[in-house]
Design a protein around this nucleic acid. Structure first.
Lengths: 227, 227
DNA sequence: TATGGTGATAACATTTACTTAACCTCATCA
DNA sequence: TGATGAGGTTAAGTAAATGTTATCACCATA
């Protein structure tokens, strides 16, 4: 996801804060929307579907907590990250904030650098969320997509990229037969043309490293991973 | 399976975590049970048979690892998904966790959104197991096109491609007579020309493997599959 | 520039599926 | 009754698909 495509909704009743924070986030390349109260915030959130919402707790009309609750009810905004702006030490509002469905909070007074790095961290989390189950366990195998490693019987195995992708694909649905063409599509990409024996050779390496029994050949069709 | 019917057992010795995580899961519509230590967890798991168990590793009385092992021993809880709560980077506990029979782990500090999406992903896995998409059952036969296998009286039979396709075709409409030319069209493709005895030979092999009675010859016409 | 890992390929071996041919059985009907 | 046609059976040959190994080009890295 490109920064340009990331939309942040900034909600505060003080124009100064909107301007300073907004300036800093815009300078970072984010697409920034602003609202001056909860009612407006909910309206904009509904329409623009931002990735991140920064909500001041104390606001006229509708406070941040209530706005947050309303926003959380909207089905399209389930994956939006919401963070509060709260005065330091106001512990109660933090709890209430989490209760309302917030993911984090930022304490006032706001220091632009801190805020920007927090925003970056939160958006990084969004990415992590998108690829949520990066660790898969099948039988005595643990496949960790994040760290690109395999654990078999407590022992770590490092696989080259193609082998890892191939194993990863086959193990994503144990038992299911993947046709050769499907494997080529998913591991090699459908533009790439490789020779006829390429898949076999990679399967062979996996059989060597992971175990012969785990990979079954279905002649004329493809391969499957079995537990 | 409706969300309301899904039960999650949450085990942690810190009431704060039980509350925050419990709140988030309840808000998602899950039925949440809690326990404060391993002993209690095992007791509740045995009684309530939850679909998913979230276990803190570090707990007084009985730690998560041991609780997991005990739970895994219970026959009713074989299909339960167990996931650990573990401090980030505690690599050892992850390995030990998988060893004890866990399916996944969630790192602390807990971020509600991450946890919820992970829970959803895990439960999606549960659903997939239950739904049989590309599977057809006829009599004591189960034909699984995804895995390219046949199950007859609980025993797995692997068939070569042509035999599989032939059986698959005949069994798609039990009782219906398929003309020889139709079979050739569908299994062999209408450009391929094969000798007169080819179909018979394949039928013979199926009769050998699946059972003589299942395939009836209609002289001058073709074959049909009967239950 | 040397090194080592990766990934593709070619050449060959092996395995398996599929087809065929030859022969057999059985029912039907002139 | 024996000629005919349809399908059944078997083993063997062939073709197709996959397994195996060695080798090479490429790339990053020391």
């Amino acid at each position: 996801m490109n920064k340009k495509e990331i939309t942040i909704l900034l909600v505060d009743d003080e124009p100064d804060i909107l301007e300073i924070v907004g300036y800093n986030l815009t300078a970072e390349g984010y697409n920034v929307l602003t609202a001056e109260n909860g009612v407006e915030a909910v309206k904009i959130a509904k329409k623009k579907n931002p990735h991140l919402i920064i909500l001041d707790v104390m606001m006229p009309e509708m406070d941040g907590i209530e706005a947050c609750e309303q926003i959380r009810k909207l089905p399209d905004l389930q994956n939006t990250i919401i963070t509060f702006l709260t005065a330091r030490g106001e512990d109660y509002s933090q709890v209430a904030g989490f209760d309302a469905g917030a993911d984090d909070y930022i304490t006032k007074p706001i220091r632009p650098k801190v805020l920007v790095s927090k925003v970056k961290a939160l958006l990084r989390r969004l990415k992590e969320d998108e690829s949520s189950d990066n660790v898969v366990k099948i039988g005595n195998l643990v496949i960790n997509r994040d760290e690109y490693k395999i654990i078999k019987d407590k022992k770590e195995i490092i696989l080259p990229r193609k082998e890892f992708e191939l194993l990863s694909l086959l193990a994503s649905k144990p038992g299911k037969v993947f046709k050769r063409e499907d494997i080529l599509d998913k591991v090699w990409g459908n533009e790439v043309i490789v020779g006829g024996r390429t898949i076999d050779v990679h399967i062979r390496k996996l059989r060597e490293k992971i175990g012969d029994d785990s990979f079954k050949t279905i002649k004329g069709v493809g391969y499957k991973f079995v537990v």
